[in-house]
């Protein structure tokens, strides 16, 4: 069986020298698919994603991108290898314009980035209208678009989103999910942590339900939504 595009396998670890938060946790995403991590508060969802991105010390397990072991790489190096990351907070440069935010996203690229930028404007037309405006002055949903756009500027293989819909209205959330599906259709794999489990699983090819730093259920999004056990415990019936 060939490796998925990105896999964090049997990850065990925590922040610094602190206690382990993840216990033998595995997260993977295939090319062009959407994988979603859901679970109750404090289940280690974001931690699992940060582990995949190299922001905490793994005591066991490995992270592989396109078959290459990247367990020892720093987050910055992983960006160069083709991972895009959108943190939950502080994910834009507030005093810089939308366009400058995108340019900063492409900072590590030496080639012409205009085409990528055009694609992003196509994906998020509102950003084109506001490209001379400071990102900090935009609405919450628009800021998330800037943040996603910034991460896409490196033309990543995998895009990782940490609770992209936190604090935005349901309409904006639907809109954002539509865009995420569109991004996945271009062949970019998406790994996403979500609080709004039901909606997120609705668009997910793969879903991970995490509890206390461990995988509890792993299946396709639709199967998890249909599973009465999962519904009862995690989706409120």
């Amino acid at each position: 069986m060939s490796d998925p595009v990105l896999i964090g396998e049997n990850m065990t670890g925590g922040y610094g020298n602190g206690p382990d938060i993840l216990h033998d946790c595995t997260i993977a995403v295939e090319k062009g698919e959407i994988a979603v991590i859901v679970g109750p508060n404090g289940a280690g969802k974001s931690t699992a994603m940060k582990a995949v991105f190299g922001m905490l010390n793994l005591r066991q397990g490995a992270v592989r991108l396109k078959g290459n072991d990247i367990t020892r790489l720093t987050p910055q190096a992983r960006v160069r290898e083709g991972m895009g990351f959108v943190p939950q907070t502080g994910n834009i440069f507030p005093s810089m314009t939308v366009e400058e935010n995108l340019e900063m996203g492409a900072f590590i690229r030496d080639d012409d980035t205009r085409e990528t930028m055009a694609q992003i404007y196509e994906l998020f037309p509102i950003l084109r209208d506001k490209r001379r405006q400071a990102a900090g002055e935009l609405s919450g949903g628009q800021r998330q678009q800037v943040a996603v756009g910034r991460a896409l500027m490196t033309q990543p293989t995998v895009l990782m989103l940490d609770e992209p819909t936190a604090g935005v209205s349901p309409i904006v959330m639907d809109e954002l999910f539509d865009r995420i599906i569109e991004i996945a259709r271009t062949g970019i794999s998406i790994l996403m942590v979500e609080q709004n489990a039901r909606q997120a699983l609705g668009i997910a090819d793969k879903g991970y339900v995490m509890v206390q730093g461990e995988n509890r259920y792993t299946d396709t999004g639709a199967a998890l939504l249909a599973d009465p056990e999962v519904r009862k415990s995690f989706l409120g019936g």
């Binding site: 990351f85 440069f93 507030p94 810089m96 400058e100 900063m104 900072f107």
Partner: peptide, 22 residues
């Protein structure tokens, strides 16, 4: 300039600047 913008980015959001490869 690229260098100037990277300075502003760093001043704006140090962590994100690091993530962006600055």
């Amino acid at each position: 300039t690229r260098a100037g913008k990277s300075m502003r980015a760093y001043s704006d959001n140090e962590d994100l600047a690091l993530l962006s490869g600055i």
